Amino acid sequence: MGESLNPSPLARLRRAVRPDWSRTVAARRTAAGLLVVLAAAAALRPDPAGQRHDVIVALRDLSPGTPLTDADVGVESRLAATIPDGASRDIQNTFGATLAGPTRRGEVITDVRLLGSRLTEASAGPDARIVPLHLADDALVDLIRPGDVVDVLAAGSTQAGLDSPPEVIATAAIVALVSAESAGPAGASERVVLVVLPRHAANAVAGAALTRQITVTFH
């Protein structure tokens, strides 16, 4: 028998609570369509991992100690996921900066690769300073590399005709830069070793270097 033309209240309630087959199919098709639209939107949305940013990179192999020019560095677009922290992005601020270590062609220039407060803070804390040293033994300079850890010694002073032993005036200094080889007017070496030390130790070393011969020992 067909459905009653005058269904009872109970039958009406059942029909409202349990939709018929056609309503169920329509609802499923609508939900499927919404899922397709959402999937398409997700596929078209830019992937953060695929974003690119301009950074400063070395255009050729570079040696430490030379101010950077437009022949040394340039701007390249790199994937965001491959860019290191502290990457340099302003080419004008990079010109004239000094590298603290050798750099390969294509390497991204970061803040801790350049002489400055970022390098000193990363090496010896926020209160660190850079101290230039002229070593008594020129041959020793050839053995020192950026990143070496050294102790700084000052030659003993002469008192009453007797030489006192050398004094350790700083420990665990980080070598930031060894200047390129050059010769002074009389053929004397002008090479300088820059070391990073906490402020008090740096000031003591700088003061001793004014009147005493300086050398270092390696860790």
Rank of each mutant, 00 (worst) to 15 (best):
V17G: 01
T217D: 08
R89L: 04
G184R: 02
M1R: 14
R23L: 04
P67H: 01
L210N: 04
L177H: 04
R105V: 03
L197I: 09
S189M: 08
R199F: 02
E167W: 00
L143Q: 12
D72W: 06
A100H: 06
L44T: 15
A80T: 11
Q51I: 03
P19M: 05
R28Y: 07
T24Y: 00
L99M: 08
P165I: 00
L115R: 11
I83G: 04
I214E: 01
P19L: 07
L44E: 15
E190R: 13
E181S: 13
R12L: 07
P7L: 01
L115G: 06
L59P: 07
A39T: 13
E107M: 14
A97D: 09
V25I: 13
I174R: 15
F95P: 04
D61E: 07
V150I: 14
V25C: 04
S8E: 09
L35K: 14
R12Y: 01
D47K: 06
A172K: 10
L194P: 01
G156M: 07
T211W: 07
I214Y: 03
L35D: 14
V149A: 12
L162G: 02
A201E: 11
D90H: 04
R104T: 15
R191I: 09
E190W: 02
P198F: 00
V149C: 09
V168W: 01
R14G: 02
S22Q: 12
A87F: 03
F218K: 09
L79A: 14
A49I: 07
S8Q: 10
G2K: 13
R15D: 00
F218M: 13
G2H: 11
G96I: 08
P165H: 05
R12H: 02
V17I: 09
A186E: 15
P185C: 02
L133K: 00
T30L: 14
P102W: 01
L140A: 15
E181K: 13
V75W: 00
A71N: 12
T215N: 02
G86C: 06
I144G: 04
L115W: 10
T217R: 08
V193P: 05
S63M: 08
V205S: 11
N6S: 11
T69R: 03
Q92W: 05
W21V: 14
P126S: 12
V17D: 01
A206L: 08
L210I: 11
T158G: 03
L194W: 07
T69P: 03
V75I: 10
A100K: 05
F218I: 08
E107N: 07
R45A: 15
R52C: 05
I109C: 08
A100D: 09
H53D: 12
A58V: 07
E190H: 12
E76T: 12
T211N: 14
R113P: 09
A124C: 04
T30E: 13
D151P: 06
P126M: 10
D137N: 13
R212W: 01
V25F: 10
R118G: 09
Q92M: 03
V193T: 03
R105Q: 13
S189H: 06
D151Y: 07
A16C: 06
A39Y: 11
G116K: 01
T24K: 15
V57S: 06
P67W: 03
I109N: 10
I56P: 04
G116Y: 02
A122M: 07
L143P: 08
I174D: 11
